[in-house]
Computed example of a mutant assay.
Amino acid sequence: MPRLIDVSDEVRAEIGDDEADRLLAGATAPDRYDCTSCRAPGDVGLDPTATVLFVGEETAVLAFAHSRCIPSQVIPVAEEQLLGAVASINQPRAESYEPLAPAPAAVPGQEPAAAVLGVTCGLVLCKYGPHAGAPRAALVVEPTGPVGRPGSSFGQDHFVELLREHGFDQVADVDQPPAELRGWSVLMAMGQLHAVLQPAQGGGTVAWWQAHQPLQVTDAWRSAANQQGEVVMYAAPAGSIGRQPREDLMRLAMDSAAQRGLLLGAVLPLAGT
Rank of each mutant, 00 (worst) to 15 (best):
I5V: 14
D9M: 10
D9K: 11
V11D: 01
R12L: 12
A13R: 08
A20H: 02
D21T: 11
L24T: 00
A29N: 04
D34W: 10
D34E: 15
C35W: 07
P41K: 07
V44Q: 03
G45E: 06
G45Y: 04
L46M: 14
P48C: 02
P48M: 01
T51Y: 06
L53A: 08
F54E: 11
E57S: 12
E58Y: 09
A60Y: 02
F64M: 07
F64S: 05
F64T: 04
H66Y: 01
R68M: 12
I70L: 08
P71Q: 11
Q73P: 00
Q73W: 00
I75P: 00
V77K: 02
E80A: 11
E80W: 10
G84Q: 03
V86F: 10
V86D: 12
P92S: 08
R93W: 05
P99M: 02
A101Q: 13
A103L: 13
P104T: 08
A105V: 01
A106D: 12
A106I: 12
V107I: 12
Q110A: 08
A113E: 13
A113I: 13
A114M: 04
A115H: 02
A115C: 09
C121L: 06
C121Y: 01
G122D: 09
G122E: 03
L123A: 02
Y128G: 04
A132H: 07
G133F: 08
G133Q: 08
P135V: 06
A138T: 13
L139R: 04
R149N: 15
P150D: 08
G155F: 01
Q156F: 11
D157P: 09
F159V: 05
V160C: 15
H166T: 11
V171Y: 00
V171D: 00
V174Q: 05
D175L: 03
D175H: 07
Q176R: 13
P177H: 04
G183R: 02
A189K: 10
M190Y: 13
Q192P: 06
Q192V: 09
Q192H: 10
Q192C: 12
H194V: 15
V196P: 10
P199H: 05
G202N: 05
G203C: 07
T205C: 09
Q210F: 10
A211C: 13
P214Y: 07
A220T: 05
A224T: 04
N226Q: 11
Q227T: 12
Q227G: 07
E230N: 08
V231H: 01
A236Q: 07
P237H: 07
A238P: 06
I241A: 00
G242P: 11
R243N: 14
Q244S: 01
L263G: 00
L263W: 00
G265P: 01
V267P: 01
V267M: 03
L268R: 05
A271D: 01
A271Y: 05
A271P: 00
G272R: 07
G272I: 10
T273I: 15
T273F: 14
